[in-house]
Design a protein around this nucleic acid. Structure first.
Lengths: 258, 258
DNA sequence: CTAGGGGCTCACCCTGCGTGAGGGTCAACC
DNA sequence: GGTTGACCCTCACGCAGGGTGAGCCCCTAG
C-alpha cells in the first residue's frame, strides 16, 4: 500500500533528495515508516506531493506552500477544488504577465527596427522588473480574488514608469499631510487628520481601485495587523501606522454618521 | 555621464547588492569608477543590464546569461535584435507551456467535478515535472531555432506519460541493439551496426522529428562533442558513444553511396 | 565642521536542493 | 549461508543568488 522514496521520485519526477528535504522541513512527511526505517508514502501523500509540486512550479517558496496546504496533510487544507482554482488563477495571471512582456518586446523590436533608440529609462518598463508579478502573488495569497484586487491589478498593469513616478509622488504628499497632522499634535479625529485620511482614500481610488469607506477601514486594520504595512508607515514616522488607522476610522465614522 | 549604483538600482528595479554581485562575478562591470572608487555605469552598461534582467526573468542562471551576452560587454555579443528575437521565442515558448498546464488543470478540475478520482500516476502528467521546459531552454540555447527543434518541441509537447514510457522503452531497445553489436565485436560499419544506426534514425523520426542522414551525422558528432550526450552513452557501456557515432557515419555513407 | 545620505568592502546568513561518505536492508542467485 | 547489487538511511558540506549588517570613506548642505 505504500511506495518507497525511489518509486515516488520516479512517479513524480523529482529526486529522492528533494523528498528527503521535504520530509526534513516537515512539508511532506511520509505517513509511515517500515520497521527498518524506510519511508512509506500512501496515496494521500502522493496527492499532497502533487499539490506541492504544482505550487513549487509556480514559484512559491516551500514555506508558503506549507502554509497554503495546511499543517501536516491532515484536515487543515481547503479541499482539492480550492487548490485547483487557485492554481488556475495564478497560472492565467502569469500568462497575462508574460503576454504583456511579449507585447512590450514587440514594441521594442519595432522601435529598434525603425532605428529609434530608446531612452534608457523606458527600457526597463516591463522587462526585468518582475517584482509586480511577485507582488501580485503575494497579494493573491493574502487577499484571494476580491474584486478590489483584480481591479487594482488590471489598472496598475498598464501604468508606465512615469505613471508610477507620479503615483509615488502623490503617495508621498498624502503621507506628508498625515505626518504633519500627527506632528502638530492634532488628534486623529481632528478635521485636518480626517481630511488627510479622506485624501488617502481618494488617492487609492485614483490609482488602484474604488475604495469604499468600509473597505478603507478594513485596510486601516491591515496597516496595524500586517507587519509589512506597519513597518512601511513606522519607517516614515513612529506611531504613524496607529495614527493613520485612527484617522481613517474617525473619517469613516464621521462621514457615515451624518 | 555616469550613473551611480543607487541610481541604476532605482531605474532598473534591482537592489544595489545585486549590482555588486554582478560586478563581483564579472557579469556586469561598470565601465568606470570615479577617483574615489564609486561605480559609474554608462548607457551601454544600462543596456547590458537590461538584457541581463530580461534573461534572468526568463529563469536563466547568471552563468548562462554571461555566456549569451558574450565577454565583458564589448563586441562579442550578437546585436540587439538577436537578443530581442531570442527573448521573444523564449517567452512565447513559456507561454505555450503555461497554457498546456492550464488546459491540464481544467481537465483535472472537470474530472474532479465529475467525481472521477485520478489515478496517482496520471496526476503528475504535466504539473510539477517542469523539466521539459528546462530542457527546452537548454535545447534552445544550443540549437537555436532550427526546424527540427521546433518540430520536436511541437510533437513531444502532446505526449502523455504513457507515450513517454513507450518511447523510453523503444529507445532502450534501439540502444540495446547497438550495445550488443558492439559487445559482439562487430565493427561499426558491419551490417548489424549500420542497421541499428538506421533504426536509431527511424526512432527519432517516429518520435521527434524527421531526421535526414545528414542531420543524423550532425547528431552523431554532437554525441561525441557534447559531454552530456557522451556521458549518457558512456553510462550504458564504455566506448558506446564512439561506436554509435561511427555506426551512424558508416550507415550514412553506405546509403548515400549507392 | 558636522550631520546625513550615499558608496565601499568584507563577511556571514538563507533557501532548495546536489552530491558524496559511511553504513544498514532486502531479494536474488550461487 | 554467503555474496552481490539495488535501494534505503542519516549526516554534512557545497553552491547560486542574493539579503543583511558592520565598519569605514566621501561629499554636499547647513
Amino acid at each position: 500500500m505504500g511506495h518507497s522514496v525511489g518509486e515516488v521520485a520516479r512517479i513524480a519526477g523529482v529526486t529522492v533528495r528533494a523528498l528527503h528535504h521535504y520530509d526534513e522541513i516537515g512539508l511532506l512527511r511520509p505517513s509511515a515508516r517500515t520497521p527498518s526505517g524506510y519511508r512509506s508514502y500512501d496515496s494521500d501523500d502522493l496527492e499532497r506531493l502533487h499539490r506541492i509540486l504544482a505550487y513549487r512550479a509556480l514559484g512559491f517558496p516551500l514555506d508558503d506552500v506549507a502554509a497554503l496546504l495546511g499543517g501536516d496533510g491532515g484536515e487543515a487544507g481547503e479541499g482539492a477544488l480550492g487548490h485547483l482554482e487557485r492554481q488556475h488563477r495564478l497560472l492565467t495571471d502569469r500568462i497575462a504577465v508574460l503576454e504583456r512582456m511579449v507585447r512590450n518586446l514587440e514594441k521594442t523590436m519595432d522601435a529598434h527596427r525603425m532605428g529609434i533608440r530608446l531612452d534608457p529609462h523606458e527600457m526597463f518598463e516591463v522587462f526585468g522588473d518582475h517584482d509586480p508579478t511577485q507582488h501580485a502573488e503575494e497579494a493573491e495569497r493574502r487577499w484571494g480574488d476580491t474584486d478590489a484586487y483584480r481591479e487594482s491589478a488590471r489598472r496598475s498593469s498598464s501604468y508606465t514608469r512615469a505613471d508610477w513616478e507620479r503615483m509615488r509622488q502623490e503617495t508621498e504628499a498624502v503621507n506628508q499631510a498625515l505626518v504633519s497632522a500627527m506632528r502638530s499634535g492634532l488628534p486623529a479625529d481632528s478635521p485636518a487628520a480626517m481630511a488627510a485620511a479622506e485624501e488617502h482614500r481618494a488617492h487609492l481610488g485614483r490609482w488602484f481601485y474604488d475604495c469604499s469607506r468600509e473597505m478603507h477601514v478594513g485596510l486601516a486594520e491591515m496597516y496595524l495587523a500586517d507587519p509589512r504595512f506597519t513597518r512601511s508607515y513606522e519607517d516614515i514616522a513612529e506611531g504613524l501606522a496607529r495614527y493613520v488607522h485612527d484617522a481613517i476610522v474617525a473619517n469613516a465614522r464621521a462621514t457615515g454618521a451624518e
